[in-house]
């Protein structure tokens, strides 16, 4: 490379912002995935479809009403409701089943979601309008500037992360979630209404994925196939952070944001595999992930 990302403090600062924003958005998706995986033991390949639901909700609502902020609650509510209903109708029958059945079920769901999307929105590429109040760039040092909306994404993600932390560490529901992730049978044996906890966690997880899709719709293409955009990488986050650990998902996602961003500019030839090398390194060091419970 003929330029150095560390030589110019402005470039370095903006790259830090880029990495943080990417990592935080990834956290929204991966936190739901790790909860669903960790507590119910469900491998939910269709998790990315909820990201898609959010993205298309942002596009459709903003298009119809002209207001992006109206799309946020509608889209998140749709994500939660859809997750809740699917848990009641389908997923609860699969908790005790082999992972293979879950993979088949959720892969089928991906195809159904994709087909329904095609019927509703066609195969064109769309984009949600950036909220007007945030549609500007903030000038930084020298020639660099940073889009205000991306900064807003990071702030919203941080607030959600804080909310999740409080929910899990300070509330009764959080206590049940933590207990459920640790030992499912024991929680049931203690007479806790696990049915409700499961449905709540499922709705929470899918709602978070939908929120990620909503937030990113104004800065990313809304197009066929986006359900797969973050699916693999969020599984990588789950594995790096430790299955079932929201804290692990947070640090894992940030780590991936940083590795991916800086690999792209320092070693672009290896950018495609950088995050997988990271995963391999973490697993060699800690086989159950950064915050995973030793097996």
């Amino acid at each position: 490379m003929s330029f150095d990302v560390f030589a110019d403090p402005a470039i370095f600062l903006v790259q830090l912002l880029n990495a943080t924003q990417q990592g935080l958005l990834l956290f929204l998706i991966a936190s739901g995935l790790t909860l669903i995986f960790g507590i119910m033991g469900i491998i939910n390949l269709a998790h990315g479809s909820f990201y898609m639901v959010g993205a298309y909700a942002a596009y459709a609502v903003a298009e119809a009403t002209g207001s992006f902020w109206l799309a946020l609650p509608i889209g998140v509510a749709a994500g939660i409701a859809l997750g809740y209903v699917l848990e009641r109708l389908l997923f609860r029958f699969f908790y005790e089943r082999d992972h293979l059945y879950q993979v088949l079920l959720t892969f089928g769901l991906i195809l159904i979601f994709e087909e329904v999307r095609g019927m509703m929105f066609g195969e064109d590429t769309h984009r949600a309008l950036t909220p007007e109040a945030l549609d500007f760039s903030i000038p930084l040092l020298g020639v660099q500037s940073y889009p205000a909306y991306r900064l807003a994404i990071s702030v919203i993600c941080l607030l959600v992360a804080l909310g999740l932390y409080l929910l899990i560490s300070r509330t009764r529901l959080g206590m049940m979630i933590r207990a459920g992730a640790y030992n499912r049978e024991m929680v049931q044996a203690l007479g806790i209404n696990i049915t409700f906890v499961y449905a709540a966690v499922f709705g929470l997880g899918t709602g978070l994925a939908a929120l990620a899709g909503l937030l990113e719709a104004p800065v990313a293409s809304v197009e066929p196939g986006i359900s797969g955009r973050y699916l693999i990488i969020s599984f990588v986050v789950v594995v790096i952070g430790g299955i079932g650990s929201v804290k692990g998902a947070f640090y894992g996602a940030l780590l991936i944001g940083f590795v991916d961003t800086f690999a792209k500019v320092i070693v672009p030839e290896a950018a495609g595999m950088s995050v997988y090398l990271l995963m391999a390194a973490v697993l060699l060091w800690r086989p159950t992930g950064l915050f995973g419970r030793p097996a």
């Binding site: 470039i11 903006v14 790259q15 020639v143 500037s145 961003t261 792209k264």
Partner: peptide, 29 residues
């Protein structure tokens, strides 16, 4: 399609022109 890191580098280099090859959703983004 996470172009942000590369756009930051381009802003740092300040060339007279940028040429790209993208199509479809990537081009929109």
């Amino acid at each position: 399609t996470n172009f942000q890191p590369l756009l930051t580098q381009i802003a740092g280099i300040q060339p007279d022109a940028v040429f790209v090859f993208f199509a479809g959703g990537g081009a929109v983004q």
